[in-house]
């Protein structure tokens, strides 16, 4: 269960190989919406890691102790999205009360996160089979998957923001200004990340 190799594999997989933004296409709206400045990208990244960690652990518990035992897996989508929306609200209120400084830096991003498909995405992925071991995710694995997917998202977001800050003043054809050039940038980044897909530390063995 606590196989360290599988934990490493999950981390590398979530950050590089199956990067949420650049290879799974999850969380694109905040990726393009909040990547104009590095400082706001950092704030968004932190908020996403935070919420993803909490959401993946809560949803794992709910799925494995409530939905699965009572055979109501078909309520998964509706339950998860409500749990995430509720959690985001709670986190927002708690931050506001206990850590105003953190709230100031993360606060405006939190409401955006409810409709960030990366968060719901990680919760749903965690209920499927773990593709590296072929059995359901354990709690530790799904928690780690949540954190590392968030890290992968933030990494892509930060890289993107860095590039966009530089290209902001470049002479781009009028029609490509703004979003289209950002898409091309993301495409080039995805091309680079495609290189990771050859990474296979622990080759698939049929036996």
């Amino acid at each position: 269960m606590m196989n360290p190799i599988s934990l490493i594999e999950i981390s590398i997989g979530a950050i590089f190989i199956n990067n949420f933004v650049l290879s799974r296409f999850l969380g694109l709206c905040p990726f393009f919406g909040v990547s104009k400045k590095v400082s706001s990208a950092a704030g968004m990244g932190m908020a996403v890691i935070f919420v993803m960690t909490i959401a993946s652990s809560f949803s794992w518990v709910i799925f494995n102790y409530i939905l699965h035992p009572y055979h109501i897996e078909y309520l998964r989508t509706i339950v998860f999205i409500l749990v995430i929306a509720g959690l985001v609200q709670l986190v927002e209120m708690a931050l506001q009360k206990y850590s105003p400084t953190l709230y100031e830096s993360l606060g405006i991003f939190l409401p955006l996160i409810t409709t960030n498909c990366a968060v719901l995405g990680v919760a749903i992925i965690n209920t499927d089979l773990n593709q590296t071991t072929g059995s359901p995710y354990t709690f530790i694995e799904s928690l780690l998957n949540g954190i590392m997917s968030g890290v992968g998202f933030s990494l892509a977001l930060l890289l993107m923001a860095g590039i966009r800050e530089k290209t902001e003043f470049s002479p781009v054809p009028k029609a490509l200004e703004g979003l289209p050039i950002a898409f091309i940038t993301a495409g080039l980044m995805a091309l680079a990340f495609l290189g990771f897909s050859g990474l296979n530390f622990f080759p698939a063995v049929g036996g």
Binding site: P173, A175, P180
Partner: peptide, 13 residues
């Protein structure tokens, strides 16, 4: 994945 980004950039452009 990269092709998806390139295509939407092109169409949007």
């Amino acid at each position: 994945a990269p092709g998806g980004f390139f295509t939407i950039a092109f169409v949007m452009g």
